[in-house]
Design a protein around this nucleic acid. Structure first.
Length: 572
RNA sequence: CGGGGCGUGGCGCAGUUUGGCUAGCGCGCCUGCCUUGGGAGCAGGAGGCCGGAGGUUCAAAUCCUCUCGCCCCGACCA
């Protein structure tokens, strides 16, 4: 490809729309352009990178006996009604109608489609296991698209779905995908750490997310430096520490004190001169229409996912003002466990609190010296708090540390959630009809590209790993006006192309500084510079993008040297 | 959806508070000369009904109303 013809408009200045490094660089390097919020067009260089990542994924999926399919993006509502998600998905789903008024959606994911496809064809255990995957656009009307490819409303995703006859076989599928993922990200030149995760709306129990650690990540990952434990903070388990019994503690007298207008923990602790960790936060929820209370320590946050899982409910919302008044007899901010006649679930940490400050269930009043057993009982002690760095490791005696992570992939064991709902069954050897056991395995392709850039850049631009660089080499003659340079460049370009090297010739009549800046910005791993002096000495100069290391190489050795770099591309 | 901010040539911005006559600057773009190892220089030039619609006014980028779009922070997301 000639640089003079390449449609890759580079920008000197960063468009104001971009905030994080990968987004800025993708726009500046001319990889993509925005079309609407969370919707991007890929330009030739950007597309080449995307295609390379897809190809790596494809190879690794094929390796574990995945078979590629192409599924509809426009999906009929009926299938989603079968699984129950036509309602559950809510505003996040792009919905549309055809001219007859039939309802469709732009597929946010493809469990329904694939399950429908498989149920009509798979009849027997002899056809299992089956692993199908697709790489294509998905659509989610995100409440907040942001950071370029990081969170788009239209995005490219690889999804594999596995169908197995039993749990052992599902295990094989799951771990095959897990290990394929490790290879995929490694080949893409980025460290992605598997961490325990929550399965969210997709359902299922066992799941790992693959996280690229970067400050721009949207998730908080907690990991233990002492052992292997690593989890998304929303999933990380709390630890129940046994209650001391030997230590006698002086219990203060229960007393209700006025706290006018102090309804937040911060206000209360300030007003009463106590620490937030001496207060109990009483949160009222309505679960499937019934009120429940969740207690966490004042300095902790409640993890709603944990509460939802505990209650096994369909709907869970913070109680509205009216409900709170009905249940507690007070405004928001003055609820407490003492005398509250609804189920009370308390986080483990509550068990250790002595002489706590709690809401008095009466406007502008709190109760001090509230103590477990003597003043209130709870329905159960459970893990409810949002885990955070500094918490105890649930697996060993270590202390959890935190880091931001970009979720580039996730693997789930789905079980029979979809196959049962949609009647996807097969006949076992003994003739019984049972639902298929499913797993699903996603990778955000665009997000992976963004994550790679977040981890591979410098002040001059992108530093592509060789494996996914849009082109491997750029040949830069310092001056196109110099006949000898231009010809030597052209010759090298042809030679490299003939050798199968992906190469761009910067044939523009630009000053060298401009060419170098563009080459660095776009991030070609290898640059061959052809200047008059070195050429007279029968040499050219090879510069490696990542290290900025320059080597003068005799003309005859240029091609072999480059091929050598390509062979051990990981080093770049 | 709640809070904040921004829409002015392709990109980055000034001008808006205190309306005023041909709407500016840098970069990029076009032509010519010149230059060629890190985004050169000189000269000439093209390109914007100031997001859109109403309104106020002798006069609106500037004031008022309504809209549309985008970005950031936050709210059970790959």
């Amino acid at each position: 490809m000639y640089m003079s013809q390449l449609y890759s408009p580079t920008l000197r200045e960063t468009p104001s729309e971009a905030e994080i490094i990968s987004h800025k660089l993708m726009l500046r390097a001319g990889l993509m352009r925005r079309s609407a919020a969370g919707v991007y067009a890929f330009l030739p260089l950007g597309l080449r990178v995307i295609r390379k990542v897809e190809q790596i994924i494809r190879e690794e999926m094929n390796n574990i006996h995945g078979q590629e399919v192409l599924l509809p993006i426009i999906q009929p509502s009926e299938l989603w009604e079968e699984s129950g998600r036509w309602n559950d998905y809510g505003d996040e789903m792009f919905r549309l109608r055809d001219r007859q008024g039939r309802q469709f959606c732009l597929g946010p994911t493809h469990e329904e489609i694939i399950t429908a496809l498989v149920r009509s064809e798979v009849r027997s255990y002899r056809q299992l296991p089956l692993r199908l995957y697709q790489i294509q656009n998905k659509y989610r009307d995100e409440m907040r698209p942001r950071f370029g490819l990081m969170r788009g409303r239209e995005f490219i995703m690889k999804d594999m779905y596995s169908f197995d006859r039993d749990n052992e076989s599902l295990d094989d599928s799951y771990w095959a995908a897990y290990h394929a993922y490790k290879r995929i990200f490694e080949r893409c030149g980025v460290d992605a750490h598997p961490v325990e995760a929550d399965s969210g709306a997709i359902g299922g129990d066992v799941t790992h997310e693959f996280m690229v650690l970067a400050d721009s990540g949207e998730d908080l990952v907690l990991f233990c430096p002492e052992c292997e434990y690593a989890a998304n903070a929303e999933r990380a388990e709390g630890v129940r520490i046994p209650r001391y019994t030997e230590n006698e503690v002086e219990l203060g007298a229960l007393e209700t004190v006025p706290t006018p207008g102090a309804s937040t923990i911060e206000q209360i602790s300030q007003f009463l001169g106590v620490k937030p960790e001496d207060c109990i936060k009483t949160l009222l929820y309505v679960a499937d229409g019934k009120p429940v209370a969740a207690l966490v320590r004042g300095d902790h946050n409640l993890n709603e996912i944990k509460l939802r899982k505990l209650l096994q409910c369909e709907s869970l919302d913070l109680a509205d003002d009216e409900t709170i008044f009905r249940v507690t007899g007070a405004r928001v901010g003055f609820a407490g466990p003492v005398g509250l006649a609804i189920p009370l679930y308390a986080d483990y940490a509550i068990e250790h609190m002595v002489n706590a400050v709690v809401g008095a269930n009466s406007d502008d009043q709190h109760t001090i010296n509230a103590n477990l057993d003597r003043d209130f009982q709870v329905t159960a002690f459970v893990d409810l708090k949002e885990s955070q760095p500094g918490d105890a490791c649930p697996r060993c005696s270590g202390t959890l540390q935190g880091a931001r992570g970009i979720e580039v992939g996730q693997v789930f064991k789905l079980g029979t959630k979809y196959s049962k709902a949609m009647g996807a069954t097969f006949l076992e050897e003994n003739g019984t009809e049972v639902p298929l056991i499913m797993g699903c395995y996603g990778i955000g392709v665009g997000r992976t590209v963004a994550a790679v850039i977040e981890k591979n850049y410098d002040e001059d631009g992108i530093i592509w790993p060789m494996s996914i660089a849009p082109y491997q080499v750029i040949v830069v003659p310092v001056s196109m006006k110099d006949q000898a340079q231009a010809e030597a460049a052209q010759r090298l370009y042809e030679e490299l192309k003939a050798e199968g090297v992906e190469v761009v010739l910067d044939d523009r009549n630009e000053r060298p500084g401009v060419k170098f800046k563009d080459a660095d910005l776009i991030g070609f791993p290898i640059r061959v510079t052809i200047g008059s002096k070195s050429l007279e000495n029968g040499e050219m100069e090879i510069t490696l993008r990542r290290t900025k290391e320059k080597t003068s190489v005799p003309l005859g050795d240029i091609v072999p040297t480059i091929k050598g770099f390509l062979k051990d591309g990981e080093a770049l």
